[in-house]
Design a protein around this nucleic acid. Sequence first.
RNA 1: GACCCCAUCGUCUAGCCCGGUCAGGACGUCACCCUUUCAAGGUGAAAACACGGGUUCGAAUCCCGUUGGGGUCGCCA
Length: 470
Amino acid sequence: MTVVTRFAPSPTGFLHIGGARTALFNWLFARHHGGRYLLRVEDTDRARSTPEAVQAILDGLDWLGLSGDEPPWFQHGRLDRHREIALRLLDQGRAYRCFATPEDLTEMRERARAEGRAPRYDGRWRDRDPAEAPAGVSPAIRLRAPQEGQTVIDDLVQGQVTIDNAQLDDMVLLRADGTPTYMLAVVVDDHDMGISHVIRGDDHLTNAARQTQLYLACGFDLPAFAHIPLIHGPDGAKLSKRHGALGVDAYRDMGYLPEALRNYLLRLGWAHGDEEIISTAQAIDWFGLDAVGRSPSRFDFAKLENLNGHYIRTAGDAELVAAARPFLEKLLGRPLQDGEAALWQRAMPGFKERAKTVTALAEASAFLFRPRPIPVDAAGAKLLTPEALEILGRLRPVLADAPEWQAAALEDLARRFAEAASVKLGKVAQPLRAAVTGSNASPPIFDVLAALGAAETLGRIDDRLADRTA
RNA sequence: GACCCCAUCGUCUAGCCCGGUCAGGACGUCACCCUUUCAAGGUGAAAACACGGGUUCGAAUCCCGUUGGGGUCGCCA
């Protein structure tokens, strides 16, 4: 059997983190089985769907490397097909016209609730003669669902789940205005798209029972179902915006790399022994629905950040310059010149070792490109004591006379200077770091000096020495 | 409320199906090492089988219940 999966977001907002994981699992499952992974935009609710949202979701998927194998399907373009199936069901007596008005339904629900019954449609038009229809009410079409027995979902993650048909009411297939409902559209589209495996959030588990009834009524073969647990916030409650229910674009803006996010999302609810850092090739090789857990997991930024640090450290220097450049340019308030970008790339090994996010990488690098005199932060200022400045003052001419401006040579010079002055290297290196970077943390200082060049380095030292006399 | 699902360190999880190891790994936390800073890295520590009953020589593992958490109950998707 050919495996065909799909990710089917409704374009009423951005691609959130749970959706991203669902997409990832679908993508991985299809890749693992050499099948196809498709996209379907569920925009049957025209009022709530916007082109901007469609684009945001497509962009988010693209950034994560989870674009569909074919152009996306759009549900609203298939109205006629959905209608055709509903009408066919009506002809076959598997569906019927329901003339209950929205007011009737509200009243029905309220009364059921008041009497402690489940708030379901009572089937009042199921066997009633349409001739009795009240005037002026256009009917919806409902499925004549089985009222006895059980519907069994054979779920690849949840196992066998049995629901009493009495729990399910006659779902609406076609609204009074003739548009299809989600239930109808999903079943017809999944069938027409040849979807073999429906992998989605477990908030759809009970929908799977309803959809199973519909599949059976339509005479369609059932796909395999896999309902994966939802992602919760750090407090165990539903993911809120504060926590991480953000669009994936927000993760990009926070400086996370797509490969880090994918690795993180993959390990949320799925494991392969003790493996933590998993490449895409390994993920494709190892992924299976049987290893997906059934309990919801909590989103943990700390672990994501750790993974992100790993992927930053192992990323290529040019790739990081490209990813971090927009952040740095925003920080600097100006575009980066090509020469500066090249310099940055050469210095990147020292920076990427220390950054956990791409934004932090840009922030930590900004001192390289700031105009003199560079700003000094609190920690840097603390280092620049009168004593430290005195040492800097004596080091300055030694540096100025350096025969070659290269990291190892400069370090050698500084070490000998410290030895001659009977101070630890730290007493020399830290003031130097503060003067040159404006802070107390940076890549190895002699690498920084080499990257900055003699003139800029000495100039920055002079700026600080000038502060002293001023 | 009804129905369905779930339950191992703070978090993500391995182990559960096919009962028998000091219950393993990772993140985070703490300590130490390395070190010109910060990271990274190394070593080590604290940290869990929700509870109660069974079954069994033996239960994290099988069964029942309790508690807790989640999901669903729309002419939304």
